[in-house]
């Protein structure tokens, strides 16, 4: 049954917001029209008029929060200084590197763990994705069906997948331990021991990440012309040689951006490390989950803002170096 009253009520709640947004856009466009077209007579006035609402939106929703966070990062804002916080300069940035970020763990070990987590995951995503893509890139029956099954993990919301997996890691009833017991091995304490918990996180995230790479790589493989392989075959190249000399170089333009993306996503992956780490083991925290806990469980707002900026700069530097060395963004500049 369509509840018309509820629909009207929710519309009235958001209606005013939408109205304000529309009004602002109309006023902005009218102003720009008067200034650019009527007064200054700029040549590409339409272009500026079209992008200006987006620029305004970005300024309000991206730039302003970033600047505000920059300011907060230089204050002592916390629960005990909730309204009456004061400016303390760069002290929070010093504290990020010198004091425990959470309970006991300090910044550097946390960074190494995050890098380890990223390396393990991206390595398996890329190799696993490549293997599956190569397997699928052949003539076979029911290829579409296989492809569908492989994509399922990607189509699941991450939180749902994490929750389902968490149940499977249960000591007593989880599928994994039940299987281990069946084949005569000792069950593993996936949830309470540090190393198994980290392994569990990796397992789930690898499972989740492979389909994306498979789909992307499959698209890339299908665009490589068969002529290259035919020519190689005539020269007597082995399958291994064909892979290293033809497939991989031809795939580079596809693999580079997906590895950059995959790295940033994994580095910043919140859902899996947060939800698989049911008992809040500090040994399973990566940078972003530690950041979340510092900000919203310990309410160290000023400190967390500085912490967030540090993480942001790490990723910025990584992306810049990677883009420069691989020339991935060359097309954009040309």
């Amino acid at each position: 049954m369509f509840n018309f009253d509820a629909f009207l009520k929710s519309l009235s709640e958001i209606g005013s917001t939408i109205l304000v947004v529309v009004l602002i856009v109309v006023v902005l466009e009218a102003l720009l029209y008067l200034i650019l077209v009527k007064w200054l007579k700029v040549k590409n006035a339409l272009v500026y008029m079209l992008v200006s609402p987006a620029i305004l939106g970005l300024l309000l929703l991206q730039i302003y929060p970033l600047l505000w966070e920059g300011y907060i990062s230089m204050t002592n804002m916390s629960l005990s200084h909730f309204f009456n916080y004061s400016f303390i300069g760069l002290r929070n940035y010093v504290r990020v590197f010198t004091e425990p970020v959470l309970k006991q763990v300090t910044f550097l070990p946390l960074l190494w763990r995050t890098i380890l987590w990223t390396l393990i995951n991206v390595f398996f995503h890329v190799t696993g994705g490549m293997i599956l893509a190569l397997l699928l890139n052949r003539d076979m029956k029911m290829r579409g069906v296989y492809r569908m099954f492989i994509i399922i993990p990607w189509a699941l919301p991450q939180v749902v997948a994490a929750m389902a997996w968490r149940g499977e890691f249960n000591y007593e009833y989880g599928w994994i331990n039940v299987m281990l017991k069946q084949i005569g091995l000792t069950p593993v304490q996936w949830m309470t021991s540090p190393t198994p918990n980290f392994a569990a996180m990796c397992l789930v995230n690898i499972w989740l990440g492979i389909p994306f790479m498979t789909v992307i790589f499959l698209g890339g493989l299908q665009s490589i012309s068969g002529e290259f392989y035919e020519a190689a075959e005539m020269d007597g190249a082995s399958n291994w040689q064909k892979f290293w000399k033809i497939t991989l170089p031809m795939m580079k333009p596809i693999m580079t951006p997906s590895i950059i993306l995959g790295t940033v996503w994994t580095f910043n992956n919140f859902n899996i490390p947060f939800f698989i780490n049911q008992y809040e083991l500090e040994s399973s925290d990566i940078l972003v989950t530690a950041l979340f806990r510092a900000a919203f469980e310990y309410n160290r707002y000023g400190f967390s803002a500085a912490f967030a900026y540090v993480i942001f700069f790490i990723l910025l530097i990584y992306s810049a170096i990677y883009a420069k060395t691989t020339g991935a963004l060359k097309g954009v500049k040309d």
Binding site: N170, Y171, E172, Y173, P187, Q189, M191, T192, Q278
Partner: peptide
Amino acid sequence: IPESVDYDTADTL
């Protein structure tokens, strides 16, 4: 007590 018991395991048992 079983090897490893959390809330749900205890509840179910």
